[in-house]
Design a protein around this nucleic acid. Structure first.
Lengths: 341, 341
DNA sequence: TGGATTTACTTAACCGTTTAAGTAAACAGT
DNA sequence: ACTGTTTACTTAAACGGTTAAGTAAATCCA
């Protein structure tokens, strides 16, 4: 069987308390004699003793684990964010439980319930559309929560998002300055707030220059089976406005699919292009594309920091019966723009 | 405070046992009266009671969590595998703890120790080079472990790998059939067994056709800072053997970097090419590249299945004192080849 | 009508830690 | 020599569940 505190204590003729103090590094301040401490340490090492964190968690109420819920782990953007979060979390002493919501609200709710049952210390969530009941409940209960990438304007939650509107506004301005008159805008129907802000940025820039968004140049791609949908949308654009001279993609996925379309149709992509979120292949595929680069590292780090702050706040509150509510952190990060055309 | 079994029991004037039985769905077989069961259920629901899995785990010895250790979460291949593993694990009732080893053996060891301390029920590991002490210890202790992507020939562990040698052999054969005489081979210095097998496949095919692997056409790219290294390797090849007529990439990362190199140098990639592991962009970047597609889904599912088998075996063994050792599963999956040139 | 069985529970120990409170011996100070 | 403090521990309860064993009342069967 796995060795336990009890096992060690009995073998050395000590109490569990003494052993626990030694192994948790409190020997000094708890006045354990040097001789005893060394005996304990030596025996524990010889058994490769590892304290049972489950038991410890039950006692302390902390699991030193944070839960991360993403629409999809395999999406490049999210997996990069996940990596940053994991890295930051680890060197702050936390492990990561990850689950994909697959952009399904019911699944998201179920995962939240599961994570709560497993007593993760806090949750980082890239939410799917409107939240259903569980997100609201998290907030009501004061469960540490940080929302990333998207947020709920109506909810009193901490969030880390990026400056979607301004980034898109600037990129669009650039296209206009380059002489574009007929800019096509491709969006997805998911991630409502995010895509809404991006569209807003584009439209504002267009309007400001006296150009309106031509409905024939606007395509909202349904993300369920987007490979086909984007083809239809692009077909439409090219037949209705053959002299389209610019493309704005509100996510790298659309851009990549568009490049594939251009390639298949033999269209030389010599129009102006812009995309929010950069992927490395752009350099090879479409070196002249203008991009807003997501601050992936900062998103991850800030999210973990914000969460840890909330968790410590919650711990403090549990002790001192102060009930002042935690003031949610709302952070908006900027993308770094890169103009390449 | 969070409601507990005790809380519910006291409020309803019942014992914890009764409440526990009802909430774990054993009301029927434990002869709980319908009336009592309904009272308990109703009250628990009104409190949004969630059993504390930590407490349950301490008792049952299972955490219903599996640990996944990957070199990097953000690598496309691994993140796809992770996604499959998470999905399969979830619908088998398990959660996933993920950590990146960053291909660092010490970090890998540390993660294993941590996962063991957190009492994950089993570990899926994509190992880094030779394992150090912890992997061996896992095996000695009979801790459920499945290795993916790479394996240790000398260790008695379950593994799921792919048929690297044969896939590369067939791809190379194809290049040769297409008339290639001077095929360059690019490998990395990491993932020793994997890259060894791939190289073997290529060399076998070459030898069989009377072609030897020309040392000037072989490049082993050091993965620490590979962006620069691959440029140097390719420079070498093009200066030493300007009439190179084929390229074999032993990972998609090398291929992508090579395309970038070709692009930057203005080299039209009209030679024959092959790569093991497909990424979608290939279609646009280099539509004529021949690929061996990794069975990502099957790797994930098989790994989880194998792990669950071991975990149930371990549970069984804990009960009936039978000590017959678990016979490790060694699975080799095939890639699906796609010849496009 | 009395013993066996079934129903509907309860008691208490246990999982492996942490930690507040207690204690006995040694030591220090006046 | 007596009190007070420090040293080096121990006792026992707690965290929130699960579960083996027990029990009292109701029901069954002959």
């Amino acid at each position: 069987m796995k060795p336990s505190l009890k096992h060690i204590a009995e073998h050395l003729g000590l109490s569990k308390t003494t052993v626990s103090w030694v192994l948790s590094g409190q020997a000094e301040q708890k006045n354990i004699s040097r001789a005893t401490a060394e005996k304990v340490l030596a025996y524990a090492a010889s058994l490769h003793y590892q304290p049972n964190m489950i038991a410890r968690s039950l006692n302390t109420g902390e699991t030193k684990t944070i839960g991360l819920i993403l629409p999809s782990i395999s999406d490049t953007f999210y997996s990069e964010v996940a990596r940053e979060i994991e890295s930051r979390a680890r060197n702050q002493g936390y492990s990561l439980m990850i689950s994909s919501s697959e952009s399904d609200i019911d699944r998201e709710d179920e995962i939240i319930r599961l994570f709560k049952a497993k007593r993760v210390d806090g949750i980082i969530l890239a939410p799917t559309k409107r939240s259903k009941v569980e997100v609201q409940r998290l907030i009501d209960e004061g469960y540490p929560l940080t929302t990333i990438d998207r947020y709920f304007p109506e909810l009193n939650a901490s969030y880390i998002i990026i400056n979607n509107r301004d980034s898109c506004y600037m990129l669009t301005k650039h296209l206009i300055n380059k002489g574009c008159k007929k800019i096509a805008l491709l969006t997805t129907n998911s991630y409502l707030t995010t895509m809404g802000q991006r569209r807003e940025g584009v439209e504002d820039a267009l309007r400001e220059s006296g150009l309106q968004l031509d409905p024939r140049l606007y395509g909202e791609v349904d993300f369920a089976g987007y490979e086909k949908n984007i083809h239809r949308v692009l077909n439409n654009i090219f037949t209705e406005v053959p002299d389209v001279d610019g493309f704005f993609f509100t996510t790298h996925i659309l851009a990549l699919e568009a490049f594939q379309y251009f390639y298949e149709k033999g269209i030389k992509p010599d129009f102006e292009m812009a995309c929010i979120h950069e992927v490395p292949i752009f350099k090879v595929l479409a070196p002249q594309i203008n991009v807003a680069r997501m601050p992936v590292g900062e998103i991850g780090r800030t999210a973990v920091n914000s969460l840890i702050e909330q968790m410590e706040d919650a711990k403090g509150k549990a002790k001192s019966r102060k009930k002042q509510p935690y003031e949610p952190k709302r952070v908006m990060l900027s993308c770094s723009l890169e103009f390449r055309s």
